[in-house]
Simulated assay, not measured.
Amino acid sequence: VALGVVLALPLPAVAAGLAATPLWVGYPLAKRFTDWPQAVLGVAFNWGAMLGWVAVQGSVYLPVVAPLYAGCFFWTLHYDTIYAYQDHRDDVKAGIRSTALRLADQTPVYLRAFDACVIASLGASACAAGVGSEPLFWAGLVATYVHLEWQRRNINYSSPAECLRLFRSNREVGLLIFLAIALAKLSQRQQQDDAEPFGAKATNSALAKEERSWRQMTGYEMLGLVMETGDMNELKAILCR
């Protein structure tokens, strides 16, 4: 199914998608050879950030895509480290390696560092994409950090069920990031519409009314036309017909 989706994309996106194949093949093996398989997952899983941009824009714009990719990478380190704590005792017996085993007592410190990198990277990407001036974006990003910090403070590393619950709560993190971006873009569009010159907004309405004979216009309509355009010449042009 995933291959079918990739092949349905424009050619540059297909090439970008297929380039990630070695990463997907290598991830299951990484647990045997490195203490950081979560990092390998982050590199592979978040390739979609680059793929999505290429699919829409046709090429990679690194000032936006690189920090976006980095932010998603560090987010993966956060949630997959929590996930790894579910099985860390069994992993020791099976000889499987993970950040949960590697970081051990230092996990809370590393999670805080990962979270700071998430926020900094997403903020840099937003600034490069032109939404860094939107308060709604930063409000969403602050909410994202608060949620990540809430997870970090409430982890019971010895409870697989609790680790799974907090891992699943990252769905809300994704929603917060999406809302931050979407609302910022909507706010920008609204501001652009509001910034359109008043005369330009009125022009279409004025032209439509000019097409009507002045004899068909009431005095109130004529007055309304002048008020819309702010120009008596519009009224004179109609009366001279």
Results as ranks from 00 to 15, higher is better:
residue 151 Q to N: 15
residue 99 T to F: 05
residue 119 I to W: 10
residue 184 A to F: 05
residue 35 D to Q: 13
residue 19 A to K: 12
residue 29 L to N: 04
residue 106 Q to Y: 14
residue 227 M to Y: 11
residue 166 L to K: 02
residue 125 S to A: 15
residue 77 L to M: 13
residue 122 L to W: 03
residue 203 T to F: 14
residue 120 A to S: 15
residue 159 S to I: 07
residue 228 E to K: 12
residue 91 D to W: 03
residue 201 K to Y: 12
residue 43 V to F: 11
residue 33 F to V: 13
residue 232 M to R: 06
residue 2 A to F: 10
residue 14 V to I: 09
residue 100 A to P: 02
residue 241 R to F: 02
residue 192 Q to K: 09
residue 232 M to F: 14
residue 206 A to G: 10
residue 23 L to I: 05
residue 12 P to T: 12
residue 12 P to R: 11
residue 49 A to M: 06
residue 181 I to H: 02
residue 122 L to P: 01
residue 3 L to D: 13
residue 201 K to M: 11
residue 190 Q to L: 11
residue 176 L to V: 07
residue 127 C to G: 07
residue 38 Q to M: 04
residue 199 G to N: 07
residue 146 V to N: 00
residue 15 A to S: 01
residue 106 Q to A: 15
residue 65 V to G: 04
residue 213 S to D: 14
residue 117 C to W: 01
residue 89 R to A: 14
residue 169 S to T: 05
residue 122 L to Y: 04
residue 96 I to Y: 11
residue 85 Y to D: 00
residue 213 S to R: 13
residue 184 A to Q: 07
residue 9 L to F: 04
residue 211 E to R: 13
residue 31 K to I: 03
residue 8 A to I: 06
residue 216 Q to P: 06
residue 31 K to G: 05
residue 95 G to M: 15
residue 71 G to E: 00
residue 116 A to W: 03
residue 12 P to D: 14
residue 169 S to A: 11
residue 158 S to L: 13
residue 71 G to S: 02
residue 103 L to Q: 06
residue 144 T to V: 13
residue 216 Q to N: 14
residue 241 R to W: 06
residue 180 A to W: 00
residue 144 T to K: 03
residue 53 W to M: 01
residue 191 Q to L: 01
residue 31 K to F: 05
residue 59 S to F: 07
residue 12 P to W: 11
residue 42 G to A: 07
residue 221 E to W: 12
residue 231 D to K: 05
residue 139 A to R: 10
residue 94 A to V: 01
residue 127 C to I: 09
residue 209 K to M: 15
residue 103 L to Y: 12
residue 67 P to Q: 02
residue 103 L to H: 08
residue 212 R to P: 06
residue 207 L to V: 07
residue 33 F to D: 04
residue 206 A to S: 10
residue 218 T to V: 04
residue 15 A to H: 03
residue 230 G to M: 11
residue 235 L to H: 07
residue 6 V to T: 15
residue 8 A to T: 10
residue 202 A to T: 14
residue 155 I to H: 13
residue 10 P to R: 09
residue 186 L to F: 12
